[in-house]
């Protein structure tokens, strides 16, 4: 059996006395997408931040390509180079143009030449229909465009694994679609992803495996046809029912 890109084993995370994640274990094989669903505050974002080493964990092991990255002796900058992360609030750098945002890390982290980084960035922008926005500043773009630029920015490092943290939560329903279709394109390109989302329809389309997080635990996981369409756990059923009532399914 091949080593999964990401392996999380018995992860535990607490903020002072409050335990936000416990007994979290899952594998993400190459070219697959694992989608985390669950109510706000169930720990989805924290989990992604832990994988990206932005938060430290209290117990358990995280492995990237079979190498433990939760070891404190590991160079976290080195790990983050292999991981792409896209945030709910885009977090583009407002003082840089779209092109500068995208080429910053390739130039300064990977040491790619300026011209080459530029060409790669423009190629990526064209691929995602943003070719004409290269010299714009982020504040001139719509939310959907900003988020797509943020996705491209993390792609420019050719990451092993992409972490998407509720990438559509700050967008209105119409802009949501352009971002989701970008993510679907990535999926068909074979990108390995861990996704936290509230978009159940999208989860259904893109997920190889869905995990339902409840109060910091994975209470149900499996293929989307099972977890989303035919959930076994009463808490999953309850959650999906509420999502359905809110009109998001």
């Amino acid at each position: 059996m091949t080593t999964p890109v990401l392996r999380v084993e018995s992860l535990r995370k607490s903020f002072s006395s409050e335990v936000v994640l416990q007994e979290i274990s899952f594998d993400v094989p190459v070219h697959t997408a694992t989608v985390f669903i669950g109510a706000s505050g169930s720990g989805k974002s924290t989990l992604l931040r832990c994988i990206n080493l932005l938060d430290s964990i209290d117990d358990g092991v995280i492995e990237l390509d079979g190498v433990e990255i939760s070891d404190p002796r590991v160079d976290s900058d080195d790990v983050r180079r292999k991981l792409g992360m896209v945030f709910q609030s885009f977090n583009l750098f407002p003082h840089m143009s779209v092109l500068e945002n995208i080429t910053l890390a390739p130039i300064h982290v990977q040491g790619v030449g300026r011209q080459e980084a530029r060409n790669q960035a423009i190629e990526l922008l064209k691929k995602f229909d943003l070719g004409d926005k290269a010299d714009q500043y982020p504040d001139r773009l719509s939310g959907g465009q900003q988020q797509r630029v943020a996705i491209i920015r993390s792609l420019a490092l050719k990451p092993r694994l992409l972490l998407l943290d509720e990438v559509t939560s700050a967008l209105d329903p119409i802009l949501v679609n352009e971002v989701l279709s970008t993510v679907r394109d990535l999926k068909s390109d074979g990108m390995t992803m861990v996704i936290a989302t509230h978009e159940m329809g999208f989860a259904h389309q893109v997920a190889d495996e869905v995990c339902f997080l409840h109060h910091g635990r994975i209470v149900e996981y499996g293929p989307p046809e099972v977890v989303l369409s035919n959930p076994q756990d009463s808490r999953t059923k309850d959650f999906l029912k509420r999502v359905h009532e809110a009109g998001r399914l």
């Binding site: 080195d78 992360m85 583009l92 750098f93 890390a105």
Partner: peptide, 16 residues
């Protein structure tokens, strides 16, 4: 802080 988080998750070092 989110700007810092975004930069760090792109692999930029603290100084960068």
């Amino acid at each position: 802080p989110s700007q810092r988080a975004a930069a760090r998750s792109l692999g930029l070092s603290n100084v960068q």
